[in-house]
């Protein structure tokens, strides 16, 4: 029986799973395809995380350090798993750097890919420099300056468009990405903090700042930071002769078409299944659900399970997920992996 757990992906979920398994005394092999640990919050340059408000590099930095400091965690960066054979309790994984790993179970913490706004050309991304994504605004906030990319001016008005790459049958994305509403209201506040003269408008169909995010983000953004919420799904972003952007759509509360000038338009991009999911499914022999995320086993008694025994999945690999919940799931999967290995050991004994 192998006393090693293979964790794939070193984002919030993977780092949490690795730390959990390591703390229980088993060995961990952590495989990360990027050159840095920390996952999307680090690789995409997020500013302050929701809901803690802590800088991504500090919060993720602590998670990374905890894993790096653990003597029983072996880390492979810039590495992928290319082959997995065997069964629960006795897997053999082949890595792209040539090494092989004998492990008892596998935790997939392979995360998501940001929706690529180029797939909604009518909203101007790729055509106009001042149309950006929430990821880019995160980077602006991290750098401490909100400016229009075209000429560096401070925007008088910013429009944040929700549900870009979410809830859209046209482009085969029928899911809600869950966190964009909260992230957008948070960004609206951060924009206002850095640039008090900027008016921020959020164009929405629904506001889904679920649970405790309601008053901490949505209400606070509206009541203290004067974010304007406009009920309209924007149809098109174009440019007016004076160089400003025009957002076109229907304001369903006044039942009128709108063509409103803006200085910057922000796409609140959703979470796509990881673009590597077809490869991940093939290598690990797990199923994908209809949207392309890793398919979940029956959750009540097979928590964190996939369609293959001994392989668990956590975080945004399973569908749009928050950082906090990904971290909790990482711990849950660690528990599953360790408990299942113990059960196998007892069975063999």
């Amino acid at each position: 029986m192998q006393k090693t757990v293979l964790v794939v992906g070193a984002g919030p979920a993977g780092l949490s799973a690795a730390a959990g398994v390591a703390a229980s005394g088993l060995n961990v092999v952590l495989v990360e395809k990027a050159a840095r640990l920390g996952g999307t919050p680090i690789l995409s340059g997020y500013a302050k995380l929701v809901p803690s408000g802590e800088w991504a590099k500090d919060a993720m930095g602590r998670m990374v350090k905890r894993v790096e400091d653990a003597s029983n965690v072996k880390i492979h960066k810039e590495t992928k798993v290319t082959k997995l054979s065997g069964e629960a309790g006795h897997f053999t994984a082949t890595l792209s750097n040539g090494s092989t790993v004998e492990c008892g179970s596998v935790i997939l913490a392979t995360g998501f890919t940001h929706f690529d706004s180029i797939n909604k050309p009518e909203w101007g991304f790729g055509s106009y420099e001042d149309v950006v994504t929430t990821t880019q605004v995160e980077q602006m906030v991290a750098a401490g300056k909100i400016a229009c990319p075209s000429d560096g001016r401070v925007p008088e008005r910013v429009a944040i468009l929700l549900c870009v790459g979410s809830r859209d049958r046209q482009i085969g994305r029928e899911w809600c990405s869950k966190i964009c509403c909260t992230v957008s209201t948070n960004l609206a506040m951060e924009i206002k903090e850095l640039s008090p003269q900027t008016d921020v408008f959020i164009y929405y169909m629904d506001i889904r700042t679920f649970g405790l995010y309601e008053d901490r983000f949505y209400w606070k953004s509206q009541e203290e930071f004067k974010t304007k919420f406009v009920k309209a799904r924007i149809a098109e972003v174009t440019r007016s002769p004076d160089g400003r952007l025009l957002v076109k759509g229907e304001d369903t509360l006044v039942k009128r078409p709108i063509v409103i000038p803006m200085d910057m338009v922000v796409h609140a991009v959703g979470m796509d299944p990881n673009e590597d999911n077809p490869e991940i499914a093939r290598v690990f022999g797990v199923g994908l659900e209809k949207h392309g995320f890793v398919d979940r086993a029956e959750h009540y008694t097979n928590t964190c399970g996939t369609t293959r025994r001994g392989i668990y999945a956590v975080g945004a690999a399973l569908g749009p997920e928050t950082i906090d919940d990904s971290i909790s799931q990482g711990q849950a999967a660690a528990m599953r992996a360790v408990a299942d290995l113990n059960a196998l050991v007892q069975k063999t004994a």
Binding site: D199, F201, W219, Q222, E223, K226, K228, D251, V254, R256, P257, I258, V259, I260, P261
Partner: peptide
């Protein structure tokens, strides 16, 4: 028929009248 602009000062102006302080909520 379309709306072509917002007057963002207007809400602020109405808010300065007693009773309308919370209109932005």
């Amino acid at each position: 028929r379309y709306l072509s602009n917002y007057d963002t000062d207007f809400g602020r102006k109405i808010q300065t009248f007693t009773g309308a302080e919370n209109v932005h909520r």
